[in-house]
């Protein structure tokens, strides 16, 4: 089993990378031997805010990924320091995201075979 961590660092709305990061992570389920997880850091932390939705700008929805997170039971982490830095007021429970501090996630990195920044 290979563990893959997809790290998204750019905000939805301004870029497509949060969507692509989740989409790529879900694509990994095509292989039985891959276990993808997703980590949101820096501006990407705003992904989990209740009010964040690029669809409001006429762009592709980000909230659509929630359905697949729940379908695949994908582990999603959001970095605590980034949530605080970008003042995310309230987390949308649809992402089933686990809050994790930077030191803890960085200590865990050795568990992953590939850490892929999107």
């Amino acid at each position: 089993m290979k563990k893959i961590l997809f790290v998204i660092y750019q905000a939805p709305g301004g870029t497509i990378w949060p969507n692509e990061g989740f989409r790529t992570a879900f694509g990994m389920y095509a292989e039985e031997d891959l276990e993808p997880e997703v980590l949101l850091i820096d501006q990407a932390a705003i992904t989990v805010a209740q009010g964040t939705e690029p669809k409001d700008l006429g762009l592709l929805s980000i909230k659509m990924v929630q359905r697949y997170i729940q379908k695949y039971d994908t582990k999603v982490y959001v970095e605590k320091e980034s949530l605080e830095k970008f003042q995310v007021p309230d987390m949308d429970e649809g992402y089933v995201a686990e809050l994790i501090d930077r030191a803890s996630i960085q200590a865990k990195l050795a568990e992953y075979d590939n850490v892929i920044f999107m």
Binding site: K2, I4, R23, T24, F26, G27, M28, Y29, A30, E31, D33, L34, N114, I116, F117, M118
Partner: peptide, 16 residues
Amino acid sequence: LPELAALVASSDRFIN
């Protein structure tokens, strides 16, 4: 993406 998944699974080294 299925092919990418296969590449990630089968590659000895993967860089992005």
